[in-house]
Amino acid sequence: MNTKQEKMMRLADVARKYYIEDKKQSDIAKELGVSRPLISRMLTEAKALGLVEITIHDPWQRSAIFLEKLQKRWQIKDAVLQEDLEDDRSTNIMLAETTIGLMEKIGARKIGIGWGHFIGQLVACLEEHPQKDTGIQDIYPLLGNAGVPIRNYHSNENVRVLAENLAATPHFLYLPALPESMEEKKLLCSTELYKQFEKNWYEIDTALVNIGNFPSTPDFASGVRYGNMLQKRGVCGRLLAYYFNEQGEIMDPGQDFAIQAPLEALRHCKAVIGLCSANTSVKALKGALETNLFTHIVARTELVREVLQ
């Protein structure tokens, strides 16, 4: 080994101790029996010779790159991506706050809102910090109420709280999300109450739809409605009370007796915002994107990175 090679090895060794092993310059100097200023000069020389490359990962730049890829692959118009915070709750709160900003950005006026854990976070966020100058005028539930003691799935209550804290007009659907049978659904959907509300679903301009995992809790009686078909078809996620697989195939809504906004009404919306909480899985988001229902996405940056891989 010649003198130049030996010098490069020494420089690389010092750089490794400082940048990789995270040692202080003074400690490296003491270990090698030299002065601290010499270590500083060696680190500077190591960078000048290309032995050290420093890369700064700008989260805004990364988000812009991911958005471009989402636009090309799934025709997503816009996305709000959030870096992970110290825990899931903090991340969800930040995601909820950015959702409100996104609605203002796209000029939402008539909002349809689904249900789920993220929706609950959004409602709680607005309860603590009302925003009454967003321009939102009307809020409608996208499906009936669930018969479970979890606030996140009480559609009318979520609508009431959101409307109160957004200075909007609430519209309530006094029907269950899950009737006992297809026969009961047909009966309920023949009423004037339902027919009027169905018209409202086709008039909303923005839909907030939680992208949930499957299986999940609560399950919403999927076994009664579908038997074991969901497992056989590889279902990985849920939007409203619809289930889909990784290929974006939505399980036959014709045999489903849930009372919820028709898929055609969602496709009629100017903006369908897919909301991903901190625990939304890669499979669930990928399958949701493959449905081609969503125009906007709110999600963790890392989740989107994994989906794009």
Rank of each mutant, 00 (worst) to 15 (best):
T99R: 08
A96L: 07
G107M: 01
G116D: 01
Q121S: 13
G114V: 06
Q131V: 14
Q131L: 13
Q137R: 11
G120F: 04
K105S: 13
K132D: 00
I106W: 09
E127D: 11
A124E: 06
I100T: 13
D133A: 12
G116C: 06
E104R: 15
E127I: 12
G120A: 06
H129E: 03
N92M: 07
L126N: 07
G101L: 14
M94Q: 13
A96W: 06
R109I: 02
V123C: 08
M94I: 02
A124K: 14
F118C: 02
I119Y: 07
H117N: 08
K105W: 07
L102G: 11
E127S: 12
P130R: 03
G135K: 04
Q121G: 01
G120W: 04
N92K: 05
D133N: 15
T98Y: 15
I93E: 01
I106G: 07
T91D: 00
R109Q: 03
L126W: 09
P130L: 05
A96C: 03
E97V: 08
I113Q: 02
W115Y: 12
L122F: 14
G114W: 04
W115H: 13
K110H: 05
T91H: 05
A108P: 10
A96G: 07
I113R: 03
D133Q: 13
Q131D: 08
M94N: 10
G107N: 04
C125Y: 11
H117M: 04
L102M: 14
H117K: 09
G135A: 04
I106N: 05
T91R: 02
H129T: 09
G101A: 10
G116R: 01
M103E: 04
G120D: 00
F118Y: 05
L122H: 03
G107F: 05
G112A: 06
A124Q: 12
G120C: 05
